[in-house]
Amino acid sequence: MKALFGNGRVICALVLPGLAVMVFALVVPIGFSAYYGLTDWAGFGKFHMIGLANYLEILTADPVFWRALLNALILMLVTIFIQNPAAFALAAVLSHLPARFSRLLRTVYFVPAVLSLVVITKLWVNIFNPTYGILNKVLHLIGLKSVMISWLSDPRTALGAVLWIILWQGFGWALLFYYTGLMTVPSEIEEAARVDGAGWLQAHLRVIIPFMFPVISAVIVIDVISSLRQMEMIFLSTEGGPGSLTQFVSVYLYQKAFIAGAYGYGNALSVLFVVVAVGLTLVVQRILRRNDDAQ
């Protein structure tokens, strides 16, 4: 067996199919995108090579691209530092509840995660509707009669409203991960910490969270990736508006390539987006690995 796996040809034969899939599914499309990013192609008809003009324009003179990246960063931070701790705390509470209650509540919290994103987005667009939406109606009921906020189109509230929908939809997943992770923590560890005099909070902070670090790392990496690739929800609710306040890169490059007829520019955006996404994922993984080693 050792000799078999030491044979170069065998290794090649085993690696080649997977590699071929990778090359055709990833490298070739990115290569094409990089090439078309050097053109002024509208998506059909003739085109000209314009060198790095698209890339330079994106990096130096396109505030929407930077706004889209900033929004992804804001979403990432909100997910990691608000959604995750909340999901962890709730998972910790659920793990101590009687099984029947815990199961019921877990199902309730997980419902948004199994619903179609289109349904969820339309649901919230209707809730946020200033004229007939339930949110403004509730505010009126509790006495705030003058409040008539257009949650998704008011520059002051649009990003917050969009982030809320994303967090609401993703909360069930985070909860599921943390709950499953907590179930794998041996009860002896917590009991030992309690015997040593640690309280509930201290036991979680000093013992359980460090034990769960691999789960936390995985959730953070998923959060980073999903923050970057936000598309459908934005497209169905604000399309990046008002202005570009809720713009995300995937929506922006789609609008450029397929609506504005700037296919070359859209491709250049997608290449830069890949670079940013890979770079950011590597940085996050390095930080997490360092923390993991330190544990």
Partner: peptide, 21 residues
Amino acid sequence: STPQFKEDHQNFTRELSSALI
């Protein structure tokens, strides 16, 4: 004009409508 001008015009009008500019 061009599709890009159309997209720009619409985006700027959106921004003006929301008093962002």
